[in-house]
Design a protein around this nucleic acid. Structure first.
Lengths: 351, 351
DNA sequence: CTGAAAGCGCTTACAG
DNA sequence: CTGAAAGCGCTTACAG
């Protein structure tokens, strides 16, 4: 593991040149005779040389400048607060190294704002970008732009297939839908009906949430026990009034519904409805450990929440960018984080 | 975050002394006039000085030598293989820094071997130790010895209250029992009986597993829905013959048993029994993602496995030791890792 | 095309 | 008790 490391000095001695020349070869700075270069490269390979990063960092004045582009945190959206913790943790760990990170945020409701912010990011000319491709078409053009500028980028939260991304860290969206299916399957009677609720506002959600629905249904197609109806309901806006109307209607038309799967992170809205209506026998499964969701989990109204480790997504994203920039380490293109199953008894460990 | 850092040179200039003197104060190497010392310490505090670890590591010849003392991996015990992965990951990350780690292993069946190995560890005079206190009394005296030698140590897998440990990383054992209780509660009828099986061989297990049982029962005392009997069964040895006899008897005496909680990591033994007997309606919940356990989880015989992140325990343990030694960072005394709920649908993420 | 030298921030003898 | 100097492994001008 740590027997004497070869140093530039050693390489130089073996090649019969000075360390300056070796350095020129290592960094492709040219100005080296082809023959010398060959010789040095051979020795480099033979000795399996790798630089001492401590010395390198000590000397180098250059800092890697990263930028994160994520939704702003709002009361409505404490989800994105977790990402900031992950970013901070990564930066803390990387503190001795020459990196810094600029946080740029956008309004999760506004395609326009996102686009404005991508422009700002591009102007910063960062060495790497971490971002959540919330809006599909705007994100695609941002990716194109980054690619043109030669700036590597990592996706979190979701990814876009046909872009030149360095890596993705996040949920396996389809599979997390299957997990939700299995959980509901385990806690319901095999003849009860299941309601699948999607509260959608923006494009990203449509894509993201429908993939979870697909996973959910796929579970019942090939593994599920529950044979009841699967009723899909889209609620266009999150006001309690609208929710009440939609769910009231659906439940009265389908009295055998005994469980509800909420495909997004706002299960608390449905939990509030159930509490108001006193519908204690309906099981609820949703996503993400928002404070308001956790409240209803602990109260026993929501049965399961599925977590996607937002902090770890951001943490790993930053680390990967840095390792790519500093060590030229190519990350796994896609890293799925575990789909966490969270109940009132283990939720505290995740907060 | 990274505006110009103060360097020893700056401190020296402010204090009107040379950098050598500053260094003496920083490292308490004595030979400094009290007055000078005071002045320098004030400036150190005022400027919030912290050393450049890169320069420090570059200069320092000293390597931190760590030792891990964990059970040997055997076919019977692939659990401890995960810890090695965590150790490796930590060492990989710490590669640029001056650390190395010696792995010492012992036979998990033998108190004597453990004791022999503690002696070997002590003789290595390491700078820090990571270990699993499998055998209680032997571990206590090892802790005493380490304390006398001034060697800091971190527990994983479990911890001993009255020892001078630097930190613990692992499961909240009692709470994980509660989680198991809740899971069984969710998937059984409220009038069915529950069997709690402990397959115990050594002292550690008695302690460890009975704490999980306590947690399990506590769940039903204050939160559970299921009102059935909770039947406790200790099986003294893991041979399939013994298991068959014990469970056959218990089931025939208690025909209302519809679920089994295995307090340890060998649920596969019970799963094998159930499969042989064709008892498909009995639900099984156990611990740890051993290959053999996972097989039965995927086959639908075991319903839930509870994971305790053995790799992360070891990974974090090593990191904490290193940070303590190099940065004098005192870790949280107790860090509970999340109790992972694992089913056939999310198990692959954990492997 | 190549080498010698300075310097990153720290630590470690050594001289006074 | 204190300071000046060498050196860790690398990078970066600069001189030839």
């Amino acid at each position: 593991m740590s027997s004497e490391k070869t140093r530039i000095k050693d390489i130089a001695r073996l090649a019969g040149v000075s360390i300056g020349t070796v350095d020129r070869v290592i960094h492709n700075r040219g100005e080296v005779a082809e023959k010398t270069k060959q010789k040095i490269q051979d020795i480099l390979k033979a000795t399996n040389y790798s630089p001492n990063v401590m010395a390198q960092a000590l000397k180098t004045k250059k800092r890697f400048r990263l930028v994160s582009l994520l939704p702003a945190v709002s009361k409505d959206n404490s989800f994105w607060k977790k990402h900031l913790l992950g970013i901070r943790k990564a930066l803390d760990e990387l503190d001795p190294f020459p990196v810094n990170l600029n946080q740029v945020t956008f309004d999760i409701q506004s395609e326009e704002d996102f686009q404005d912010k991508t422009r700002i990011v591009a102007e910063l000319k960062p060495d790497g970008v971490l971002f959540a491709p919330i809006f599909m078409s705007e994100s695609v053009s941002f990716c194109t732009q980054l690619q043109k500028l030669g700036i590597p980028f990592i996706f979190i939260d979701g990814y876009l297939e046909n872009t030149d991304f360095l890596g993705y860290v996040g949920e396996d969206i389809f599979q997390s839908g299957r997990v939700a299916g299995q959980l509901i399957d385990m806690i319901t009677h095999e003849k009860s009906d299941i309601l699948i609720v999607t509260i959608a506002r923006n494009i990203r959600n449509v894509h993201h949430l429908s993939k979870r629905t697909e996973g959910f249904l796929s579970y019942f197609r090939n593994s599920g026990r529950n044979l009841g109806k699967k009723i899909i309901l889209n609620i266009p806006d999150p006001s309690s009034e609208t929710i009440k109307n939609y769910i009231d209607n659906t439940l009265s038309e389908n009295p055998e519904i005994k469980s509800i799967f909420i495909t997004g992170s706002r299960s608390y809205l449905i939990a509030m409805y159930l509490r108001k209506r006193g519908l204690k026998s309906i099981e609820l499964v949703g996503y993400d450990l928002l404070d308001s969701n956790v409240k209803f989990l602990k109260a026993g109204i929501t049965r399961f929440l599925i977590g996607q480790r937002p902090d770890e997504q951001a943490y790993k994203g930053v680390k990967k960018l840095f390792e790519y920039l500093s060590l030229h380490k190519i990350p796994d293109k896609i890293e799925y984080l575990p789909v966490d199953i969270v109940t009132s008894e283990n939720v505290d460990f995740f907060l």
